[in-house]
């Protein structure tokens, strides 16, 4: 069970860390000052969640490790995030829609995890949930504002949806390790999470007058460490300091 929980904690932490890192890239590039601040504040929350879940992974690890080691010293094949969170940040519409998809995913996942049979995981999920609710109210409002405003903004949102939609089913993938955790009521049934996620997001897409793309290619690979080329570049940037100056603190 410890090994399974270790792997699942990495899945949660890697997802939040890669989301947070991409949002942090907006620092100084936001569409206007207040939004610049908002993007980086959400980033900070997500990196905080990553740190909590890396600590959970460390507590369930068979070897001695630290949250910093897990974030800065693992290479691409050891990362467990779904591909959607490592994609380049794109334009503001793309960032906004991706944030909305992940916020809805986190909302339902953390709601269920907050009643996990693992007390530590439940406590962390409760803490993260409070912040995710606020992120969602922001990303949802932005989706509506952009989609229902000018033709150009609507077009950009539709383009973002066409690009992102096929990355979303991977969020709900499971492997044998996660299935054991599901059986033990440590984590919820991911299929049920997918159902509520779909209902909620499809309603918003309809409200935003965005057309859901036809079924096509579906992204997969994060759970087994098979990533896009983008993660390598992200890690090179993010991990540079620890790789160049091992053990460096500031």
């Amino acid at each position: 069970m410890n090994q399974d929980l270790y792997q699942f904690a990495l899945r949660l932490a890697d997802t939040s860390l890669t989301m947070g890192q991409r949002l942090a890239e907006w620092c100084g590039h936001g569409p206007y000052l207040e939004e610049d601040v908002a993007l980086t504040n959400v980033s900070l929350d997500l990196i905080g969640h990553a740190q909590m879940f890396y600590q959970l992974a460390c507590d369930n690890s068979e070897t001695s490790t630290s949250p910093d080691d897990l974030a800065f010293l693992r290479d691409v094949p050891e990362y467990r995030n779904p591909l959607i969170t490592e994609l380049p940040r794109g334009d503001f519409a793309y960032t906004t829609l991706k944030q909305y998809f992940i916020d809805v995913y986190h909302l339902h996942l953390y709601q269920q995890l907050s009643v996990s049979s693992d007390e530590q995981l439940a406590a962390l999920a409760q803490k993260a949930l409070m912040e995710v609710k606020y992120h969602l109210s922001r990303s949802e409002a932005w989706c509506q504002r952009l989609s229902l405003s000018t033709e150009e903004a609507h077009e950009k949102m539709q383009k973002a949806l066409d690009d992102l939609w096929f990355y979303t089913p991977e969020l709900f993938e499971t492997d044998e390790s996660m299935q054991r955790l599901m059986t033990a009521s440590v984590i919820p049934d991911m299929g049920a999470i997918q159902t509520v996620w779909q209902q909620q997001t499809e309603q918003l897409l309809e409200d935003c007058q965005l057309a859901k793309p036809e079924n096509g290619w579906m992204a997969t690979g994060g759970l087994v460490g098979e990533h896009t080329e983008h993660l390598g570049y992200m890690l090179a940037d993010m991990q540079f300091l620890q790789r160049a100056y091992p053990g460096c603190e500031w």
Binding site: E34, E35, V37, A38, N41, V42, L44, D45, Y134, S137, R138
Partner: peptide, 13 residues
């Protein structure tokens, strides 16, 4: 409300 995030994560503008 001008912005949901103010000078820090805990504040709005």
């Amino acid at each position: 409300c001008i912005s949901q995030f103010g000078s820090t994560a805990c504040k709005a503008l």
